[in-house]
Structures are given as structure tokens and as C-alpha cells.
Amino acid sequence: MKKFFHEFLKGIFRENPTFVLALGLCPTLAVSTSLTNGLGMGVAATFVLLGSNVIISGMRNIIPGRIRIPCYIVVIATFVTLVEMTMKAYSPALDRALGIYVPLIVVNCIVLGRAEAYACKSSVTNSFFDGLGMGVGFTLALLLISGIREVSGAGTILGREIIKGFDPVRVISMPSGALLVIGLLLAFFNLIKRKK
């Protein structure tokens, strides 16, 4: 059990996909404008990661090495389609807000990276906890970034205004603000790591 916990935790801190591996930055930059979007993207990616990690790990002995990437993509695309259809049916507003970035989870480098670097050489249970940890790590990073951006860039939390008469720093909710916030957070986490 301790080993599984270790696999799970590494995705959150030691190998956090956003702040340590710097993977999956495209959706992170694009959708982290509000907490709702960040959470939606995080949960969707976590589900896909979990599913693809488990299936790919289960089939790792029958997938021929030379065509493994197309095989991974087919598996991942299946889960992304599930997510997309579910989202369209139950939460059309979120689907509109995330737009093209939901189908683009297919080529998300975290998902593909875990399949290639981990799931194809590890047992199903290990891959399950790896996928869960990476997904949760990605979601937490997204929540942190989108929280900062929503509060300072739009002056709201979950769409509600916090302080009356506060002039939000609009640039933070623009694309350049995403780069700024992520850059500063990366610097902050590197500083903590160096201190250790």
C-alpha cells in the first residue's frame, strides 16, 4: 500500500506535471482563466489519464513496439471522446468555455508522456496510481493558476465578485497574464526546491 501511495504522491509534488516536468502547458495557459474552467480541464484530463494508463498498461505485452504511439493515441482518443460527449450532454456551458481544448487532450503531452514513459513498462495497479497522482497534480496546478488568475484578473471567485469597486488587473486574465503567472509560480517552486 505504501508503494502505491508513493506512486500517487510523486505526481503531485516531486514530478508535478506542470511545475516540475513542465508538460501540458498549452491547455494550462489557455483555459486557466477561471476556477471552473481549471477544475473542468483538470478532472477531464485526470479521467483520461487514469483510463489510458490502465488500458495501455494492461495491453503493454500485446502492442507491437513499432506502432505503439498510434495505439496509444487510439486508446486516449476513445477516452477523450467519452469525456467530450459527457461534457456536451451534462455541462454544455463548460464545454463551450473549454472549446477546442477538450478534444486536444488527445495530444496532451502529460497523457502521452505517462503512457510512453510509465504505463508501457509498469503493472496495471502501479499505472493506475501513477495516472491518478499525475491527474491530481495537474488539477491542483490548474486550480492554483486559475485561482490566482481569476481573483486578480477578473476580481471574482467562481464567478462571484469579491470586493466592490476593485479594478481587476485585466492583463492577468489575458494570454500574456497566463505566461506571467506560470513563470512566477515556476520561479517560486524552483526557489523552494533549491532551498531544500
Binding site: 479594478d167 481587476p168 488587473v169 485585466r170 492583463v171 492577468i172 489575458m174 500574456s176
Partner: peptide, 8 residues
């Protein structure tokens, strides 16, 4: 430019 984008 920061101010221009934030508080036009």
C-alpha cells in the same frame, strides 16, 4: 504596456 493592458 502592463498598465495599458490592465486599466485602459
Amino acid at each position: 504596456v502592463f498598465l495599458m493592458a490592465s486599466w485602459p
